[in-house]
Amino acid sequence: MQIPFIKQSTKEYYRACRKQGMSLFDFIHGYVYARWPYHYIGLAGDKNPWWRWLWVPLVFIIDRVHPFTETDAHRSGDPSQTRPTWSDAYHGKPLPLAEATKLIRLDRPVNTSLPETVLPYTKARELILNNPERIVLLDCPCRAGMKNPCTPTDVCLIIGDPFASFVLEHHPTKARAITADQAVAVVRAEQARGHVSHAFFKDVALGRFYAICNCCSCCCGAMKAHAHGIPMLCSSGYLAEVNQDLCTKCGTCAQKCQFKAIGFNKDGAFIREDRCMGCGVCTLSCPKDALTLRAAPEKGSPLKVDDL
């Protein structure tokens, strides 16, 4: 039976959910998330809209299902602890500029499951792109929820269908289709501002990658949650390191670092390795090229697009 008032992109998303074996509840959850992101995500902002009073009871209810603790086996080291956590359902991985650019420029369908070393979560580890050249630029729901947001606000890249078409069809005043070159320009400009590019994955987004968000710690709900102990972000698989012979202690890198991972001593800058997420923003900001990224297997594996 054809239902004329249901948008085509909604039908495509529903079909994809059925094909994936997802429940009706998951479909509704995903629909609400993508249909009303400025309400769903904006709850974490400081504009204090009328619906924000729902945030505390909502968090309490969700915490009963996905507790805000490190309880699953691969992170606790205890094989008996296998209950999924909040971050398993929704998480991001920082992308250095080179890898973000390659991911954006994918020009053919990709279908792969990322290993746990790349995304240390029990859910949402698929990188499946249908129509990967379909890219939509969306006004950031996190920044929209702030009284004084970072600018510009149109910095969220929705990549591939059915998500890109869904967002474009349901948010025509806040989203627009762009080319891969335009998307790369957005990422370059955001990283130059000191913002971090994250590949985001979500369980009700068919358990897969669906967006590259360019995030700042003052606005981004995921970064705020991570800073408060909810492990919604995993390392890029790299660590920043400093060439002390080149460092002039100008402080630019520390100002740009969203994770507060750079300090200074008498020798120059140093990296707080427990905080560094390997995003690479500091390497772009240093006027003396004193900062580079090195592979850090102890932090995990990079998302290397060339290997997909």
Rank of each mutant, 00 (worst) to 15 (best):
F166R: 00
H226T: 00
R35L: 08
I135C: 07
G194D: 03
V184F: 07
D154I: 09
H66T: 13
D307P: 00
A100N: 00
G45T: 09
L129K: 07
W55E: 13
Y121T: 03
G251Y: 09
R188F: 13
A44E: 05
L246V: 12
Q244C: 06
W51I: 07
S80A: 06
P109N: 01
D154M: 09
D289M: 15
Q191T: 10
C250E: 08
H66A: 14
P109D: 01
G92H: 09
A180S: 15
P57M: 10
L43P: 00
A124S: 07
V167C: 09
I104N: 03
P141E: 11
P115Q: 04
T122L: 12
P132L: 13
N265G: 12
D46V: 01
E12N: 12
C286Y: 01
N214V: 02
G194S: 08
Q81F: 09
A240P: 00
A124V: 00
Q191K: 08
S197W: 06
L246S: 11
H171C: 10
H171F: 08
T151P: 04
D46M: 05
F259G: 06
L24E: 14
L114K: 00
K147R: 14
R64Q: 15
S197Q: 01
G160P: 06
M146E: 11
G21R: 04
D107F: 02
I159G: 02
V56C: 10
F60E: 10
G145R: 00
C250S: 09
L168W: 02
C276R: 07
C218V: 11
R143D: 10
E116S: 07
D161F: 05
F5Y: 14
P141L: 13
K174T: 09
K249P: 04
S236M: 02
L119E: 05
T153V: 15
Q244N: 10
C215T: 03
P162H: 04
D88G: 05
P149T: 01
Q8V: 14
S301Q: 09
M223R: 03
P149M: 10
H226Y: 03
V184E: 09
L239C: 11
S285E: 02
I158M: 07
L308I: 14
W53F: 15
L114P: 02
R52E: 05
V196L: 04
Y238W: 14
A189G: 05
I6M: 10
G300N: 05
S23E: 05
R18C: 08
P231Q: 04
N130C: 08
R143V: 03
D154C: 10
C17I: 07
A89T: 02
A290V: 03
F60P: 06
I62Q: 14
I135E: 06
R176W: 13
A295L: 08
H170R: 11
F259W: 15
Y14E: 15
L103C: 03
A100W: 00
C17S: 11
K123L: 08
S235D: 14
G268F: 12
T112E: 01
A177R: 15
V242R: 00
N48L: 11
A100Q: 04
T101Q: 05
V110K: 05
F200A: 09
L119N: 03
L233G: 09
C140K: 00
P172A: 13
T283Y: 05
L58T: 15
